[in-house]
Design a protein around this nucleic acid. Sequence first.
DNA 1: CTGAAAGCGCTTACAG
DNA 2: CTGAAAGCGCTTACAG
Lengths: 327, 327
Amino acid sequence: MSKGLVSLAINDRPGVSEATRLRVLEVADRLGWRPSLPARTLSTSRTYALGLVLRRDLRIVAADPFYPAFMAGIETVLTDEGRVLVLSVVGSAEAEERAYRTFAADRRVDGAFLNDLRHDDHRVDLLRELGIPAVLVGRPDGPAPFPSVVLDDAPGVTAAVHHLVDLGHRAIAHVGGDPALLHARHRRRAFEDAVAARGLVPTAVVDTDFSMAQGASATAALLAGRTRPTAIVYANDPMAIAGLGVLQEAGTQVPDAMSVVGFDGTEMARHTHPPLTTVRSDPQEWGAAAARTLLALTTSGSAASVELPPAQLVVARSTGPAPGPTD
Amino acid sequence: MSKGLVSLAINDRPGVSEATRLRVLEVADRLGWRPSLPARTLSTSRTYALGLVLRRDLRIVAADPFYPAFMAGIETVLTDEGRVLVLSVVGSAEAEERAYRTFAADRRVDGAFLNDLRHDDHRVDLLRELGIPAVLVGRPDGPAPFPSVVLDDAPGVTAAVHHLVDLGHRAIAHVGGDPALLHARHRRRAFEDAVAARGLVPTAVVDTDFSMAQGASATAALLAGRTRPTAIVYANDPMAIAGLGVLQEAGTQVPDAMSVVGFDGTEMARHTHPPLTTVRSDPQEWGAAAARTLLALTTSGSAASVELPPAQLVVARSTGPAPGPTD
DNA sequence: CTGAAAGCGCTTACAG
DNA sequence: CTGAAAGCGCTTACAG
């Protein structure tokens, strides 16, 4: 039983009789022997690791339940495949680029997840150039050399606007996210299109950085504005919750005087007062699907893009009939 | 310029003249050459990676801003040291043990963080046995073979109780966390001791799993109980926020009819209505300190335990004078 | 179907 | 202070 034979048997390569393979596996198991990963990596240059770089302001990451759920979804598939997740949390675009370059130089990972897509996202070229296979988490705004895993935000936002208009609202505002991020643009665009489809004009559309602080100040600004909306659609739940706080501090009843819609469908949204009407996506399944796709890409060299079920409106008690004279 | 020489120069080993070392580094830099990590790992068995296994119910992880901040803190020190974080998110004790065993078998990491300490935590023995150096994040309840990095919860909880008693509260309840976790026990113990120190008896102490759902139901139970508290101290901010929701749904004014105290000092606590009195700790600094300690341990073989500044009470508007006839 | 050999790219004694 | 050699533990053609 030579080294080479064992290797062939362990790696399910042809050229080993089934009987021998079983014997090898049995002996390895009995001895508790496992091939050394560093040695294997040195000769095959496969690391059995996938990389995720998070670039976000800490204040935002900390309040946003997306990433923990997304990562948990990734793990559900990696664990079974003997893979591991290498995580990097960075605070700037420069640090993010350094992180990817280090991944490449150190051969840390077989592939990477690319989250929070941007317009003309130069990280796509960077990863291609570095030779790191990637999966795009979200819909890119142009042709891309990598497969994408998409969960469409638009239908949920559209449904939210129709829900509000059906309740009699005519003055609806949007507190959007960071316009540098494509998904924030998608939500904003879906909002604007849906409002227009009902023959209305948005009362206001405010960009933010997705933080609760900016969600709060945007809400305060809307309350102080010349034309005050009767409903606000927020680009994420944390901002909607901060908005709820501002409204209640100002004595504005929700939903009697103001309807509020969040986005994410977080646990938190179920426990506010009143519980939040929100648009639910499934970040855990998103993570799992992204991991499956990236795994396929790194092992077979190619993988098809995936379209997940779109985000859905979940109506709770933060939305109600428009106040004042309705027709 | 032989391979060996280059290696000595790159690794700052003695036996190379300063002039040659500089020349080697200059040439490496010009050629963009970096030593191959897998090869280096194979000969030195150092991976330059640190491991973190998260075992928590997803519902809790997602609502809890501790981990994102803690991990960001870790990253601030790892990045500069050319290290990387390997993350595993698991749902059960068995999966957690498997994760550590895989870390060891695959030589994935040089050391690991041990969070969410438990009574007689058998992971400590497991890691010792597997030969994985670790740092304990929190105060262990007994002698341990690893250094710990402690941020004491008690002073903040104690201050919260005194604050409430000073406001005239005599009926104070505690919605605790998961009693399997030492930090939940510490918070509970600090609560009970502080109440006793003021000559009072807790109106109630309820254990939970730290989830918003159980925070909400514990609050509902307290409202329905025979002796109703005038103040509730929660073991984390998410539960306090869920409690706020339940109280407001029930028409109980905060703080007029009920004072509420959270724990964590999250961003979220600043944006509720009313803003939450809470106990602030610094999870990011905690992560950074834990990373520094683990780095020292893995490189030098030993590291001293660290005691960080304790958690502090931050008074906001969810606490006020006790309702009814005060003396 | 099996065994002996080279190679992955470093580090580390060991001579010179 | 420098160069040649062995070794880390696998995988992979290449002969037998």
